[in-house]
Amino acid sequence: MNGRIVIVDDEPITRMDIRGMLEAENYNVVGEAADGIEAIELCKTHHPDLVIMDISMPLLDGLKASKKILAEKYAKAIILLTAYSDKENIEKAKKYGISGYLIKPIMEKSLTPMVEVAIATGTKAREYEVSLEKLTKKLSDRKLIEKAKGIIMVEQNLSEDQAYQLLRELSMNKRCPIAEIAEMFVASDD
């Protein structure tokens, strides 16, 4: 399978047509929804690679549902479908981080490349987000350790190396990350 996809459109015929095109290209359609609320619930459950969603739907429109799905990281990418190409919706789509925008009627020759690119860019963006989160955590831990070393140096009259060695020994003896030990020193100093 090439990717896991949720299709969202209030028109059952449109969903059926899109499903047929996608399955012919070996994509796995993991769910279908008729409105934005159903779309959010399906994405919470399946965490698809891609959501293909109509903008104009009852209850909760595609733009609002897309904003929620992307903000909560329930899907890697979203392609919006619309019968109209109005500037306001295009601007909102760009602002929310939408990966693609297709005008109905959908043609297989335009859908397949758009799906492929959207899944690839969504996957790459998610990899970058994970890397950024890891780096941010490392930086935060490093700052915490440095602050704890400073506190230990002052309180126990130790050199920087000695303070760090103390943190490492405590970490090993207590079998917990050095950042957790450092956090205890910093919290107790507040």
Rank of each mutant, 00 (worst) to 15 (best):
M1P: 04
M1H: 12
N2R: 15
N2E: 13
N2K: 15
G3M: 13
R4K: 15
R4E: 09
R4I: 11
I5W: 07
I5G: 03
V6A: 05
V6Y: 00
V8D: 03
D9Q: 12
D10L: 09
E11T: 15
I13H: 06
T14H: 09
R15G: 07
R15K: 10
M16P: 03
M16L: 14
M16I: 11
D17M: 15
I18Y: 05
I18D: 01
R19D: 04
M21W: 08
L22S: 02
L22G: 01
L22Q: 05
L22C: 08
E23N: 15
E23M: 12
E23L: 01
E23C: 10
E25D: 14
Y27W: 12
Y27Q: 03
Y27T: 14
N28L: 15
N28Y: 15
V29G: 08
V29Y: 07
V30N: 02
G31K: 06
G31S: 07
E32M: 13
E32T: 08
A33Q: 06
D35A: 04
G36V: 05
G36S: 11
E38H: 01
E38T: 06
E38A: 07
A39V: 09
I40V: 15
E41A: 14
E41G: 07
E41C: 06
E41L: 12
L42V: 04
K44P: 15
H47V: 13
P48G: 07
P48N: 13
P48S: 13
P48V: 00
L50D: 04
V51H: 02
V51N: 04
I52C: 07
I52Y: 03
M53T: 15
D54W: 03
D54L: 07
I55M: 05
S56G: 13
S56W: 12
S56C: 13
P58W: 00
L59G: 04
L59E: 10
L59H: 13
G62Y: 04
L63M: 06
L63V: 02
K64Q: 11
K64D: 06
A65W: 01
S66R: 10
K68W: 00
I69N: 04
I69T: 14
L70T: 02
A71F: 11
E72L: 14
E72H: 07
E72I: 00
K73A: 13
Y74W: 11
K76E: 05
A77H: 06
A77W: 04
A77P: 00
I78W: 02
I78M: 02
I78C: 08
I79K: 08
I79M: 12
L80W: 00
L80A: 09
L81W: 02
L81K: 10
L81A: 09
L81T: 01
T82I: 10
A83T: 09
S85V: 00
D86M: 02
K87D: 00
E88A: 11
N89G: 00
